[in-house]
Simulated scan of single mutants.
Amino acid sequence: MNSTTPIPEVHVMVAAAKQFVADEIHFSALVGPITNCEWWCRVSNANSHIHRLAVEWRQLVDRVWNEYGQHDNPLTVEKLRMQIKADLGEAL
């Protein structure tokens, strides 16, 4: 597989992100699609920009979750929503 081969996990991640931006799903519902996309991008030599986006979104979601207080700079759900909306841009 090369960097131009479509990866279904990207579409699933973007669909979940759109639902999150529309306030249709909880931020925790992003974890699975983002993690799957990140993994598939890594193992399939997918587009590096998509891989970086998945990594960034996973880190942002973790800052919102901050279950163990591991982040000194936690993120609010609204800021996560704004960032993902900005990243999606015209895809909305």
Rank of each mutant, 00 (worst) to 15 (best):
M1E: 09
M1K: 12
M1V: 08
N2L: 05
N2D: 15
N2A: 01
T4E: 15
T5W: 08
T5I: 14
T5F: 10
P6A: 01
I7G: 08
I7C: 12
I7T: 06
P8I: 05
P8D: 00
E9L: 05
V10T: 08
H11N: 13
H11D: 14
H11Q: 11
H11R: 12
H11W: 06
V12A: 13
V14G: 06
V14A: 09
V14E: 14
A15K: 13
A16E: 05
F20M: 05
V21R: 00
V21M: 03
V21Q: 03
A22Y: 04
A22V: 10
A22C: 08
E24G: 05
E24M: 07
I25C: 01
I25G: 00
I25R: 00
H26W: 08
H26C: 08
F27W: 11
F27H: 10
F27Q: 03
S28V: 11
S28G: 01
S28R: 11
A29D: 09
A29V: 03
L30K: 04
V31C: 07
P33C: 03
I34S: 00
I34Y: 04
T35Q: 12
T35W: 09
N36H: 12
N36W: 13
N36Y: 11
C37M: 07
C37Q: 02
C37Y: 07
E38I: 05
W39G: 11
W39K: 15
W39H: 15
W40A: 12
W40L: 15
W40V: 12
C41K: 01
R42L: 12
R42S: 15
R42N: 13
S44M: 14
N45E: 13
N45M: 04
A46K: 04
A46D: 09
A46M: 05
N47G: 08
N47R: 10
N47F: 07
N47Q: 08
H49A: 15
H51D: 07
L53E: 12
L53F: 09
A54I: 10
A54Q: 02
A54T: 05
V55Y: 07
V55Q: 10
E56R: 12
W57L: 00
R58L: 07
R58W: 10
R58T: 09
R58V: 06
R58A: 14
Q59T: 13
L60R: 02
V61G: 05
D62G: 13
R63E: 15
R63C: 06
V64D: 03
W65R: 13
N66P: 03
N66R: 08
E67P: 02
Q70T: 07
Q70C: 08
H71L: 02
D72R: 13
D72G: 15
D72P: 07
T76A: 00
V77E: 11
E78R: 04
E78H: 05
K79W: 03
K79R: 07
L80A: 00
M82C: 08
M82Y: 10
Q83T: 12
Q83E: 12
Q83G: 00
I84Q: 02
I84D: 01
I84N: 01
K85L: 01
K85P: 01
A86V: 04
D87W: 08
D87V: 00
L88S: 09
E90P: 04
L92E: 12
L92V: 11
